[in-house]
Design a binder for these strands. Structure first.
Lengths: 210, 210
DNA sequence: CTACTAAGTAATCATTCGATTACCTCTTAA
DNA sequence: TTAAGAGGTAATCGAATGATTACTTAGTAG
């Protein structure tokens, strides 16, 4: 969730914002909340609170919870792809996989981003979200094959590694890092360098109440 | 979901069963439903209908939706591990990875089994389900390392490949197989042989109403 | 037979949640 | 200065859902 004023509770001088800016704020908050609870599990009220606005405002601004999630998904994919494109532009072709890997793990800094993606990837049965999720995954696949010039097996390896990382994150496996030897082993294996990054995201904050 | 009398609607001579058997039936139905809609998205009523019993009966038999899901998760893990143990016992150590891979994909025959696992793996933030899911994943990891004798990198590769397959299934990517060239490419790459199996599971049946 | 137990349901309740409505109040252009 | 539009909320609604309660009825042991 937003690192600044996580619990934007109370009624501090809610400064009026241009709706574009407010929209941005809400999308960031929503990314965090959807990442933590999933599409179905998250409530528009949680998003509203995290963004410091009222629940009806969230719904009205995006039309529906579903449309809000679709925007979150879209933004997450854009962030992922644009990150990769930057990496692609700044590095030589050799060693590219390693750099992509690093960049991917770096995306964990944007709390909720990869988690929201992950949640979308499991919603294949949903008529509208499922379609969007499939198309999103395919975009990434096509980027690898066509833009980055990865071969089939190289692509498979990369995507598979990414899904393993996603799973570790989705499971909040890092929460158990210093209490469980096996977890340490697993995470060390699963994360290509950058283990420290995962660990310093802070233990998953658990809002006790919805 | 159950292949026989999928929609056990109406009030056909509901033969009374020993509760052990009924329990089994409900667990199978629940595996399918949870696989399709996820823990939060699935309703106890959907499970009940799929099992051909009333909703209160489902809740009473398992205590709560949460406990029901935990049992589904437990069974899925047991099925996975016992399958692997069988493979392990029947084959020589060399070529083991390939056989595990096949066995894993074969598990797709048990509709909902891998999907339910996948759904659990994304619930890390849930206090009780998250813990169970982490422990479950660790069981699989430890099996690979200790029982199957996989090395670290070999284990990583295997788990990563598994997560990629899970993602393809969760996304219902195969639904698009014959309408999208890229999907064909992706699935061919992602699935080590056994592609046909994934394709013949039947297009995800979509009950239009909950 | 009969009475008891286990299998199973109908009815209904309390909550939760997304959405809608009706309203308020800043900001700003003329 | 003021009207109007944009930013924003309080109140509330209806549907969905997990759970509970109070029953009914099929087996089955004696």
């Amino acid at each position: 969730m937003s690192s600044v004023s996580a619990d934007d509770d109370g009624h501090e001088p809610i400064t009026r914002m241009k709706s574009r800016d407010r929209r941005e704020l809400i999308l960031e908050a929503a990314t965090g909340v959807f990442g933590d609870y999933g599409y179905v599990g998250a409530t528009t009220d949680q998003v509203a609170r995290a963004a410091g606005v009222s629940q009806p405002y969230v719904v009205r601004m995006f039309g529906s919870k579903e449309k809000l999630f679709l925007e979150v998904l879209r933004r997450a994919l854009d962030a992922l792809l644009s990150t990769f494109r930057t990496v692609l532009a700044e590095n030589s072709r050799t060693e590219l996989p390693r750099y992509f890997g690093r960049a991917y793990v770096d995306l964990l800094n944007d709390r909720g981003l990869l988690l929201s993606l992950m949640h979308a990837f499991v919603l294949g049965s949903d008529p509208v979200i499922g379609r969007a999720a499939r198309e999103g995954f395919l975009e990434v696949y096509e980027f690898m094959r066509n833009e980055a010039g990865f071969g089939p097996e190289q692509t498979r390896e990369f995507l598979a590694g990414g899904m393993l990382i996603n799973t570790m994150v989705g499971l909040r496996m890092s929460d158990e890092f210093d209490t469980n030897e096996t977890v340490r082993e697993l995470l060390t294996i699963a994360l290509p360098e950058k283990l420290d990054l995962l660990l310093h995201l802070g233990k998953t904050q658990r809002p006790t109440s919805k």
